[in-house]
């Protein structure tokens, strides 16, 4: 039986290959991924300029450049959406294609199988968003803009680690629901909503402010706000500690939860 097992690193390598081939074969999709942060930025700034004044926005958020802040926030938002959609959508896509039975039959625990699928998303999807944001950041703030966006990449990676655990759990749960789409896809916008991605968390109802304390994206947004802030970045270290703690906590639950999902799938199958 041991001779049949697949090494984790081999699965990761295969997933990287698959991820890169996907974008290579679907260049229109890659193009869309690059311009998505700009579309989000355009939507918010477009609404803002039409209905009000960007100086008021900058003043209320305490940031120097509203455009730079919105670009950074959109980058964080897109990375979070990508990872949840890609990892949770992984099982769904393979189910539609008819390749899911082969993945389930791979001699490897489901938790490791899905975790290996999440690694390329964790590393590469924020890279796509960050690279797309770089030109505007450099144009507006020069070297400072470059430093800001590259530091943001490190913080997004840190923020994606707990999200990877969460996404793997969602991907496993998608296997047990007999639905046509990812029924948990509203998780990504919900996390963005409570994280105050384009506004201060304080404008949200009290209950949502309390929920946001356990949402990793909130701390990545806090880091983005600190980096773009006009005042001292006091909350930066708190955010980094919180994300490190969450990376361990969220991934701790992944393996036992997925073992139960795997047992259920092997017992009852999936549609």
């Amino acid at each position: 039986m041991k001779a049949l097992s697949v090494r984790f690193m081999d699965a990761v390598r295969a997933e990287f290959y698959s991820y890169i081939r996907f974008y290579k074969n679907n260049r229109a999709f890659l193009f869309a991924a690059f311009i998505w942060p700009y579309l989000m930025m355009m939507l918010l700034l477009g609404l803002g300029y039409l209905f009000g004044d960007p100086r008021m926005y900058a003043e209320r958020l305490g940031v120097r450049s509203p455009v730079l802040f919105v670009v950074s926030a959109s980058t964080v938002a897109m990375s979070s959406v990508f990872i949840i959609d890609e990892v949770a959508g992984y099982t769904l896509y393979n189910r539609w294609n008819g390749t899911l039975p082969y993945l389930i039959l791979v001699p490897m625990p489901l938790s490791k199988r899905l975790l290996s699928a999440s690694i390329p998303s964790v590393l590469l999807s924020p890279a796509i968003s960050v690279i797309s944001a770089l030109p505007v950041a450099v144009y507006i703030e020069g070297l400072r803009g470059f430093m800001l966006v590259t530091s943001l990449y490190a913080s997004i990676i840190l923020g994606m680690l707990p999200l990877a655990g969460l996404s793997v759990i969602v991907a496993g749960l998608v296997l047990t629901t007999k639905e046509e789409s990812n029924v948990a896809s509203s998780l990504a916008p919900f996390m963005l909503l409570v994280s105050g991605v384009f506004y201060p968390v304080t404008i949200l109802p009290k209950i949502l402010q309390e929920v946001s304390v356990v949402v990793p994206v909130r701390y990545v947004v806090d880091i983005a706000k600190s980096l773009a802030s006009t005042t001292a970045a006091g909350q930066l270290y708190v955010a980094i500690y919180a994300l490190t703690l969450m990376a361990f906590a969220y991934n701790l639950f992944t393996v036992p939860l997925l073992s139960r999902v795997e047992a259920r799938v092997r017992m009852y199958g999936f549609e």
């Binding site: 960007p54 926005y57 384009f198």
Partner: peptide, 15 residues
């Protein structure tokens, strides 16, 4: 949720 995220952001621009 998506619409709310953008509306809450856009409202901060307005008086």
């Amino acid at each position: 949720l998506w619409v709310t995220i953008f509306l809450l952001g856009a409202i901060l621009f307005a008086k």
